[in-house]
Design a binder for these strands. Structure first.
Lengths: 113, 113
DNA sequence: CTTTGAAATCGTTAATCGACGATAAACGAA
DNA sequence: TTCGTTTATCGTCGATTAACGATTTCAAAG
């Protein structure tokens, strides 16, 4: 990235990419799945479930929070995380929209040109 | 990334992450949208449409191809790209599945714990 | 006030990414 | 065969990411 060229793209494209990027790591996918299952929020339990260190989990959570996909709420000495309904809805809208852009089962076998 | 820890995660998590990662850059989002619109395949036209250099576009196309989202077909001196129906279906399945995991409009306002 | 436990932040390191220009490869046409 | 066009690859460089351990912060207990 010689010099960020991201600004040259649509803000929508940037927003989609930002969300996708947040999903672009197995640890973050795993975190989101855990939060979705036990819909209640967990905290350091995530660390126990994941094969990575506490500080690394914390970083991933920060990224997910920045992307708006996750919320953290301080509860005494620990922090409860859960999916952020607003950001999650947005993700569904944007990524779902992109994924839907191919009109489903393009009837041609696999021909390109 | 001190040492890759990705292996520690489910292959499904890795697959989801790989697809999401491919979508994690505005240029690649833009490319996919272009290919979806003009469903026919374009080639160096992409370069004209995008604010980045030819070699950079080529790199992004390579990543999309590696992720299985795009196909290229040599046509004389030029190459035709289009969305790969198989990979695209897989992406829809996996990412759609993840996005659907939150049971929609969690009726609670925004409460976490 | 001090201890204790949980979580975030800091500092570091290696690896990967994004971008570019330059070069090479592929191919049709002259 | 040689030329022009199109695309891929190479080499480079700075920025970012992923990971860790160590340290700091913060809130509840004691």
């Amino acid at each position: 990235m010689a010099t960020h060229k991201k600004e040259q793209f649509t803000s929508l494209e940037q927003e989609i990419a930002a969300i996708a990027k947040a999903l672009g790591h197995p640890a973050r996918v795993a975190i989101l799945q855990l939060l979705a299952q036990r819909r209640s929020c967990v905290c350091g339990e995530l660390v126990l479930e994941l094969p990575i260190s506490q500080s690394t989990v914390s970083q991933h959570l920060k990224e997910l929070k920045t992307a708006g996909l996750v919320q953290g709420e301080v509860d005494g000495p620990r922090v409860c995380y859960c999916l952020d309904p607003t950001g999650w809805a947005r993700a569904r809208q944007l990524l779902g929209g992109l994924l839907a852009e191919l009109p489903t089962p393009s009837l041609q076998p696999d021909a390109c040109c």
